[in-house]
């Protein structure tokens, strides 16, 4: 179609908008970059990721590792020495991939980090555009598979909360039921991650959206309506769960380092 718009195509950042359109993408860029930098740093540390019955969610499940939470014991001998190792590096690809391919985050980082567009009605830096039709962004369509893995992680993190209710008495060595601030931190973490995962657009599709007659959905209309209700707040779930998963790691790390002391309620 021959284009003869009123005023010619504008350059990067050019707009007639008067509002502070740059604030939202800037805040998202800072939030996402801050999280990625912290998570990368924490994943490569390989220490201070557990404290008593608490295990940092960045390191759960701990497939190989030195903590009592490890599923298969310490790092196997066949692990190549030249390859850096941390229990987090074995598992973080899954939640990372889930967030990276998430519909909400995609829209956000395309704007905030790739300026495609920087904001609604604001000029872009590049003339060429391929969208998600071709490689590499066509790979974003794998999102539902990351969602399946994210659901598994919810069960694992839920089990971590259960384990965080059982404390070893240092004097007697007996294991007793209890609750500390760390238990609540981990419980809040799995709750927020649960909200984020269940409110996922792919989950909504799986549990009813794919049907024209929603009564035919896997768990019926009620389930679809519930997921749709959560989905309306997907952005909030995304941000709260992102913040809290990082905070959970900070909490366990600082307790493990002796900077913070975990308060036991009983």
């Amino acid at each position: 179609m021959a284009q003869a718009a009123a005023s010619s195509k504008r350059g990067f950042g050019q707009t007639e908008r008067r509002d502070l359109w740059w604030v939202e993408p800037l805040a998202i860029a800072i939030g996402l970059s801050g999280f990625v930098i912290y998570a990368t740093w924490a994943a490569f540390q390989g220490n201070n990721y557990h404290y008593g019955p608490y295990l940092s969610p960045f390191y759960s499940p701990e497939i190989f590792g030195d903590s009592p939470h490890s599923w298969f014991g310490p790092l196997p001998a066949w692990w190549p020495l030249w390859l850096p190792f941390s229990p987090a590096l074995l598992i973080l690809w899954a939640p990372g991939g889930f967030r990276f391919t998430c519909y909400y985050y995609r829209g956000s980082y395309y704007k905030a980090l790739w300026a495609d567009p920087p904001a609604c009605g604001v000029g872009e830096p590049r003339a060429h555009y391929r969208g998600e039709r071709k490689f590499p962004l066509i790979v974003q369509n794998i999102h539902r598979y990351f969602m399946y893995i994210a659901v598994l992680f919810l069960f694992i993190l839920g089990y971590d909360v259960w384990k965080a209710l059982w404390f070893t008495n240092p004097a007697t060595g007996a294991v007793q039921f209890g609750m500390g601030v760390g238990t609540l931190v981990l419980a809040m973490n799995v709750s927020l991650l649960g909200g984020y995962t269940l409110s996922c657009h792919s989950m909504r599709h799986l549990l009813g959206g794919r049907h024209d007659e929603v009564n035919k959905a896997l768990f019926g209309r009620g389930c679809y309506n519930c997921i749709s209700g959560l989905n309306r707040h997907h952005m909030k779930w995304a941000w709260f769960s992102l913040f809290w998963v990082a905070f959970s790691d900070v909490y366990v790390r600082l307790c493990s380092m002796g900077v913070w002391s975990d308060r036991r309620f009983f």
């Binding site: 519909y103 909400y104 995609r106 829209g107 609604c120 391929r130 969208g131 998600e132 071709k134």
Partner: peptide, 15 residues
Amino acid sequence: KGIGYCNITKCCTKV
């Protein structure tokens, strides 16, 4: 119809 071009910026919803 090119739905793959949409990169979910939600500008359409906003306006």
